[in-house]
């Protein structure tokens, strides 16, 4: 948490700088809002689901990109994510994001006490994932293929490295304590996105469906897979499982969209139940370079604490705020 507080003024300053430098100096070749926003893992998409759209405001003969910052405020957790993406010719997207889960002492102190560890050893705990992503558009065009049902189709991968799987000083990290097997993993996905111009009673409608192969626990924030003996019955031993994700959005006007997302999760670990992630969002595009997202996110259960029966559940519902700068 401390680390994040030190970082945030720099992140804000950098964002403001990029915002100012983008004002009117460049004009994206793409139409307003057709670059979407950035999802938590750094890929172009909605708030929590990667879409088939390629990041940036570039067209096929340009290079573009995005920078984003997302904060989710949950009762005893915060999720922060920041990253950048490059879009090459509206065909290939390369992205990097760092996601951080900050855990309140209200969660960690009872665990420390129960395990007999020195008091305060887990104060201000954070768990981070570095996510390197690549996405390739393979067919269709979400916006221009009107009059047919053909969506834009992209395939992508997200390689995630949990940098707090094992903590320093030989103390086992939280993901490992919860029974996760690996500190890194790679998600593979296929995304289909279609915009129906005038498709919702005259308003523009966006539909997205994504199929993901993943081993990640809570997006990788709680590691990957499950160690022998730590797997939930029916989880298939914590290997790759197929998850489904969907987004729907309606543009109330050219600058404003409302929508909802749903994303299923593997639920590998017996120690802590993992549920589908959901959100309801409002996205505002004041111009081609900026996008702001306000959402209510319901991320299911996170570990709540420790009791005689094991780890308790914590409802992870809260406010989701995100900002994105796009170029050219």
């Amino acid at each position: 948490m401390l680390r994040f507080r030190k970082l945030s003024p720099i992140a804000i300053a950098a964002t403001v700088f990029v915002m100012l430098s983008c004002q009117a100096a460049f004009a994206g070749g793409r139409l307003l809002a057709t670059g979407g926003v950035t999802e938590l893992e750094g890929s172009e998409g909605g708030g929590i689901v990667p879409w088939a759209i390629i990041a940036g405001m570039e067209t096929r003969d340009q290079v573009g990109g995005t920078a984003f910052y997302t904060h989710i405020s949950l009762p005893n957790y915060d999720v922060d994510s920041a990253g950048v993406a490059v879009g090459i010719g509206e065909r290939l997207e390369l992205s990097y994001a760092r996601e951080t889960l900050s855990i309140s002492n209200a969660i960690t102190t009872p665990i420390v006490t129960a395990l007999g560890l020195p008091l305060g050893v887990l104060d201000g705990s954070t768990i981070s994932d570095d996510v390197i992503g690549a996405k390739l558009k393979i067919a269709g065009d979400a916006v221009y293929d009107q009059g047919s049902l053909m969506p834009q189709i992209s395939i992508g991968a997200q390689h995630k490295v949990n940098t707090d799987f094992k903590q320093v000083l030989g103390v086992t990290g939280i993901p490992e304590v919860l029974g996760a097997k690996n500190a890194s993993g790679t998600d593979f996905y296929l995304a289909m996105t279609k915009v129906f111009l005038g498709g919702a009673g005259g308003l523009n409608l966006l539909l997205n469906g994504t199929i993901r192969e993943t081993e990640a626990n809570q997006d990788g924030l709680l590691g990957f897979g499950c160690a022998p003996g730590a797997c939930r019955a029916g989880s298939g031993g914590g290997g790759y499982s197929t998850q489904g994700e969907g987004s729907a959005a309606v543009f109330l006007n050219p600058n404003t969209a409302i929508g909802a997302e749903y994303r299923t999760m593997p639920n590998n670990l017996v120690s802590t139940q993992e549920d589908a992630w959901k959100d309801l969002f409002l996205a505002y595009f004041p111009n081609k370079q900026l996008a702001f997202t306000l959402a209510y996110a319901a991320l299911g259960n996170f570990p709540g604490g420790i009791s005689a029966a094991g780890i308790t559940k914590e409802q992870a519902n809260g406010l989701f705020l995100s900002g994105q700068v796009s170029f050219p």
Binding site: L31, D141, V143, Y144, D145, Q146, G147, F196, L197, G198, G199, G201, G202, L203, N204, N253, P254
Partner: peptide
Amino acid sequence: VEDLEKSMNKNEVPIPLQNRLIGLLAPLL
């Protein structure tokens, strides 16, 4: 397309009609 949108806004064409017209012209890309 942006110049068309500008003109439709100037002539107060309702957003749903704007969207439908752009939807018909988009495949000309």
